[in-house]
Design a protein around this nucleic acid. Sequence first.
DNA 1: CGCTATTTGTGCGTATGTATC
DNA 2: GGATACATACGCACAAATAGC
Lengths: 254, 254
Amino acid sequence: MQRTTPTLMGEHKRYVIVARSLLKDIQDGRYAVGSLLPAEGDLCRQYAVSRHTIREALRRLVEMGVIERSQGVGTRVVARNARVRYVQSVASLADLTQYARKTRLEVRSVRDVIAEGELTEMLGCKDGQRWREVSAVRFSGTSEAPMAVTRIYLPAEFAELASQVGATQKPIHELIERRFGETAVEVEQAFGAVAIVGEAARELMVKDGAPGMNVLRRYIGSRGQILEVVANTHPAMPDYCYTMRLSLNRQNKA
Amino acid sequence: MQRTTPTLMGEHKRYVIVARSLLKDIQDGRYAVGSLLPAEGDLCRQYAVSRHTIREALRRLVEMGVIERSQGVGTRVVARNARVRYVQSVASLADLTQYARKTRLEVRSVRDVIAEGELTEMLGCKDGQRWREVSAVRFSGTSEAPMAVTRIYLPAEFAELASQVGATQKPIHELIERRFGETAVEVEQAFGAVAIVGEAARELMVKDGAPGMNVLRRYIGSRGQILEVVANTHPAMPDYCYTMRLSLNRQNKA
DNA sequence: CGCTATTTGTGCGTATGTATC
DNA sequence: GGATACATACGCACAAATAGC
């Protein structure tokens, strides 16, 4: 292709033209989701550009989540449109808890339990599985006011870590990663309202039946196994409020 | 090639070696945050590789959020560590509400209010600002049980949309986008426990003072202005439970 | 203001490595 | 083994943005 018309070509970058064209073809269904795009070499001839330019265009589409590429196979269409527009990000799992660094955890009891019924459902495991349950209360460092009652469930193979709870500021899943090399690749969080009753009400210094918020977190390992489950109960707003921010992900323009 | 061991040992790719080396230099402070990295040409000589290889390495670091590059200027260090490892994604803002398609909203009252005191704080605006407040109850389509009481706050310039609430299945922020061209680029969500009292308790058919969960959502436009604020109050679990999933963002290994 | 030097961005050609079928 | 496809890597040239004189 002639490269002697800089003023004309300066308007549009070639890889952008190619990317736009391919994206349009995908959106219009000329390349079906699940099918393979032509090989790089074919696209070079088709658009009369170098392989480098084709690869730059395809790279854009990969970043948009429209295609996936694998060596020895080809370029597969995986979506008609650019993916996810809104994302929430946290730099580390510790941010999930949103606790200031200066909080302390006082352990109340440690015991072994066998999952059944409601507990099975909460932990998301099978009936009969063994867990070590640590009950604790979290205090704000600055005041004596308790901010949450906590129950931590560890599967039997990590049970020994229960003794570390409260002894270190580090979250348990970090200990699991360090000690057993299992990293949480996914975390499920659930929020819901509950009445605070019994022991929990005494610990949180609220009257029996006062409104509270439950935050349940399941840490899931690379093979889908549950590494840890934490259940927190917090007293009513404005004492405790969990906030998150979602941002528009502008990744644009193909 | 033997596949018995994961490809951990080799990693002879040159751009990976360069990326790792540069990242280490950044983390060790040899390249300070805010400073410029050597130009591509210098790095070529330094590592005795082609410019292509250097650019591939730098591309990795850009994706990790460690450096930023600009034409005519250079490559600037912007962080010592890779950014965000865990992300939650939602495909559209409608997913936030997690309501099944088959719910309906019954409007109870519409009135204009002037923000002051507690309301100012909740809306995140200045005292004296005018809002239109729509009070409503959301019902599950399948049963007659109410699932939440809702208050929607619209700034004065969008007030006319209040009449659309309940008349359409579309979320209000979509109407704002269509009608006024203002897109929500950010959403803040806050969760907290409250006692359900008075009118809300009657509507939700729970007894006065029963535990509930408040979900407050602020939709924020491109110029930072608030487009809409929605406050939902839900009865206790398991009737309502807000769940989210965070996934590990595997993109490093530099 | 224009000019120049510098730096990254775009684009082409070619060759070889490596995963998959 | 062979064919095919993407991945890595070298080289070169020119465009576009920026900063400083």
